[in-house]
Design a protein around this nucleic acid. Structure first.
Ligand SMILES: [Mn+2]
Ligand SMILES: [Mn+2]
Ligand SMILES: [Zn+2]
Ligand SMILES: [Zn+2]
Lengths: 125, 125
DNA sequence: TTACTTTTGCAACTAAGTTGCAGTAAGAAA
DNA sequence: TTTCTTACTGCAACTTAGTTGCAAAAGTAA
């Protein structure tokens, strides 16, 4: 179930995603907003935003959950699937708008993919 | 630093990887071996096996760490990089021996990748 | 066997994320 | 505007994966 009421928490989180090109980890958000809202609320709002197709989530290289704005998705379908890049050095993550071909694998039905490219970002190399 | 002594724990874990085609999660190993060795030992042996190039590790869709046998790697270099498949239904993970092209991304140096294809395995579909 | 050093077990800890529940506040209805 | 319903939030306690420090145990070479 997605967002039904435009609460302060929802507005706050949406504003962060709007002005942020990069992906943001749940941990970063909890830290950033620790004076404004409870971490439980953050996790729960993120869940709702995702099920509404407003953001997407994926796992970073260290097993943390990351979120970023979706483009063209809705509660009905998540179509904005793309690879992500994480810097080994500073940990930053971005969405990549490249199109990677997913091969079909015998005897398996592939529904989606999580592609994480790991290396060094511009400011760290 | 890798394995120096052939201990019982090392032998046990290596035996599991030898007879196992699929990947195994650290959690599964801890559960499987709970009567034979301490979980700390398991995590530490896995670390050593990985730095010796005998196994490789990656994150599954739920943020758990998975391990599988390496082919042709050594402590000097991990060359056996390949996509993995995880079943949404039963959670099982396999190594895929397909070759996926990693695109080069402007302003970023890509060192390696974690490609996880998610869907339904043969027995679940 | 002895001596040296790696490896292990244990217990306590850390950190990310979850759950249950009582209280608060959107927003529709009156 | 006030009332009413129920989605949403805060809090505290919990769960679970993985880590750390240290003392004891077990490889290995001499
Ligand atoms: Mn993205
Ligand atoms: Mn593999
Ligand atoms: Zn960087
Ligand atoms: Zn399956």
């Amino acid at each position: 179930m997605g967002v039904i009421r435009k609460t302060k928490s929802v507005e706050t989180l949406l504003a962060i995603f709007e002005q942020n090109k990069d992906a943001v980890s749940a941990v970063q958000l909890v830290d950033l907003l620790k004076d404004q809202m409870n971490k439980t609320t953050i996790y729960r709002v993120l869940e709702r935003l995702e099920s509404d197709g407003l953001v997407h989530s994926f796992m970073g290289k260290d097993g943390l959950k990351w979120y970023a704005t979706c483009h063209g998705c809705s509660s009905a379908q998540h179509i904005d699937i793309h690879p992500h890049f994480q810097c080994q050095h500073c940990g930053k993550v971005d969405c990549l708008s490249v199109d990677m071909k997913i091969p079909s694998i015998p005897n398996r039905k592939i529904n989606f993919s999580q592609i994480l490219l790991i290396g060094e970002c511009e400011s760290c190399s």
